[in-house]
Structure formats: C-alpha cells, structure tokens
C-alpha cells in the first residue's frame, strides 16, 4: 500500500491513498484516522478524513513534519484478523414525495419510472459516508443506484429547507441546513443532521453508513415533535 505524504503548509499534512472515489481507498483513510487516534500522538490538533486522503493538523512547535511522518509510517494497513468489520448504519426516516419531496413526480416522468420504484431504489441501499464537508453535517455519500442518477437542476433553488433529501448527478444526500442548491428534492427527514446546540452538533461521522427508511406524513410529524422535545434518539443498526 502506497501512502503519499503531501505538506499543506507548516501546520498540516495530507496523507494520500489514491486519486479516485473508491470504497477501499476511503477505508484506508478511515483506518489511518483510527490508528492515529489510538496512538495519542502529542502535537496533533485534529484529523480531517476526506474521500481519498487524511489531512492531519499539527502543532509544529510540538512535533515536526519529519517526526510526524515517522509515526505514521508505523501504520500497517492490515485488517484485524478474524474480526469482520461491522457497518454502523444510521437509519434516516424519510418522507418521500408530496410537499416534502417536490421533485419526485417530475423525476418519475423524466425517468419513466414510478415514484414507488424510485423510492424503493433509493431506500434499499446503504450509503457510505465518504466524508463530510461543504456545510456542517453535509455527508458525501457513495452507492446511489445508477438507475436514479439525475443531472442537476438547470436552475438551482435559492432556498432549500433543512432536512431535504436530494439527488444530484451520481450523489444523494441530506441538506443539513437551509441553503441554495441544485439537487432534485425527493423527500425530507425530520431528524437533524446538524444542531449547534446539541452535545454532538453533527450526527454523522465519515466511515459510517446511512439507510433511508420510508415514513408516512403522520410518522414524520410525530418524529419531528420528538426531535423538537429532545426525545428522539437516532436509530442505528450494525451489520
């Protein structure tokens, strides 16, 4: 396994594992992040895992670039033997169509596919969180079924409500905060991917998975109420 060490100034280092978006490359990024966290190396300020590389922010008064690389070279990219890696999957309740997913109908006619089929395809995969970025809590997900890829909207919307579930190109994801955007909106989740007031402001971590679970409007409203009352606990499955 090749690791490329690329300096990003005098206080950050990028360890690159490849050039493409690829499940195995991304897994190496996650494993290196786990390794570094387990080593408690003094001088490391924070880690930023992305698609194909790990950015390491460090304090050069405490540890030099050279010494840091020396520590990282101890990383052996071996899977722990006999231990199958379990996926941590966040179940994301999603109300598809109607006002929650205003583009679902148009998408259905463009694709010549029923809305039920689109929902089935969208909710049957487990999507890997390759990284977070762009906005607080925005997850870059891999694994969208080819049959429901959609080119971005010709005219992006100026405002999309938080919780919107969309499809753009070969990607799907959830808008964690209200923002402009050019994705096709197929549904909305009542759970908060980002809430700065919460003890853990951002729900997801890179390396985990997301599964969308179809819910009714009345389920949506009851979960939304629980979220508001701080009574909702995110549901995870491990497979």
């Amino acid at each position: 396994m090749e690791m490329r060490f690329l300096p990003a100034g005098d206080e950050a280092l990028i360890v690159e594992f490849g050039m493409e978006i690829d499940d195995e490359i991304n897994r190496k990024v996650q494993r290196l992040a786990d390794f570094i966290r387990s080593q408690n190396i003094s001088g490391i300020r924070e880690l930023l895992p992305t698609f194909r590389s790990l950015m390491i922010f460090y304090n050069s008064n405490v540890i030099s670039y050279k010494k840091l690389i020396g520590k990282i070279k101890h990383f052996k990219n071996d899977k722990e033997e006999g231990v199958a890696e379990k996926k941590k999957i966040l179940c994301v309740p999603c109300c598809y169509g109607s006002d929650y997913g205003p583009d679902l109908k148009e998408m259905s006619s463009r694709l010549g596919m029923s809305t039920e089929e689109i929902i089935k395809l969208h909710s049957q995969s487990d999507y890997k969180i390759y990284m977070l970025g762009f906005q607080p809590g925005f997850t870059y997900l891999g694994g969208l079924d080819k049959r429901i890829h959609m080119p971005r909207l010709d005219t992006p919307r100026t405002s999309i409500p938080a919780g919107s579930v969309g499809i753009g190109g070969n990607q799907t994801g959830v808008y964690p905060v209200a923002s402009p955007g050019g994705w096709w909106l197929i549904g909305n989740t009542p759970i908060e991917f980002y809430n700065p007031q919460r003890e853990k402001p951002v729900l997801c971590n890179a390396g985990e998975y997301i599964r969308f679970i179809q819910i009714s409007i009345s389920d949506y409203e009851s979960i939304q109420k629980d979220v508001k009352d701080n009574k909702y606990n995110p549901e995870y499955v491990y497979e």
Binding site: E46, L48, L132, F134, P136, N205, A206
Partner: peptide
Amino acid sequence: RFGYMEYGV
C-alpha cells in the same frame, strides 16, 4: 474553532 473540521465546520 478547532476539532470540527471533520464535520464540515
């Protein structure tokens, strides 16, 4: 604000 880069902040 440090420690939240991996969450997009």
